[in-house]
Amino acid sequence: MTGGPLAAFWHDFRGNRVAVAALVVVLLLLAGALSAPWLAPQDPYDQVTLSLLDARRPPGFVGSGGYVHLLGTDPSGRDMLSAILYGLRISLQIGVFAGACALVAGTTIGLVAAFVGGRLEQAIMRVVDLQLSFPAILLALILVALLGQGRGQLIAALAAAQYAYFARTAHGAAAAERRKDYIEAVLATPLPAARVVFRHLLPNILPPLIVVATVQIANAIALEATLSFLGLGLPITEPSLGMLIANGFQHLMNGRYWISIYPGVALMVLVVAINLVGDQVRDQVNPRLRR
């Protein structure tokens, strides 16, 4: 692709070395998570491969499986590197799914509000604003408490806690676009409204939404980890990074730092890297902030 807007975008993006490094890290972690079954030395949730003789061993220990546990083992003799790769997979899945659900729900709500106008618009946006002033973590906590535990419930809770950011962004961008002449002109033609929205409006409000989506995926991952750490996230059968950290928490005091710290490092690197990429994308989408 030459000379297109994407190429120009990439050219600007390349100027920020930190952002490029962050993008590489994100892609590496993504690749690691996707290929976990092939990459991990062990299937950490196959009871057959676990041996209590290997339990709580420090990094570098050669276990009964005959390979080095690079990041040590947990109290069940599980290889931490394998557990982290599988945990990363679960965390990323939840984050991306929840982010996507929030994106679709929030954008729809924001667009509807912008186009119906009047009192309904005011009422919708008032609710959205109110929710935005309410901390997402508290909201997610309440929703998880209400809906109970499970993957679907968790995704629903995260999406419900985050949709408002998308709704606000979509509404703001759409309301601004709607006032512009070209939309008025298109609306005056007998094109169906849905087509106007998708063909003309969406491409214009997409960039700010992408920015919000990047940051919200990172937030969803962090939220999920927090909830799992508090014991209110995924069920025990799906150990995300947050649960790995929680499981290792009690061993932290005994000096067995690796059970908790390495999953935490993976989580931190992932979240910070996504945020750094998001920061750069935001600066590029909104040049007013650049300076």
Binding site: A222, A225, T226, F229, I245, I261, M268, V271, V272, I274
Partner: peptide
């Protein structure tokens, strides 16, 4: 801004 609070607490 981005690192979860509970993780910082752990550290």
């Amino acid at each position: 801004f981005s690192v979860p609070t509970f993780w910082i607490g752990l550290i």
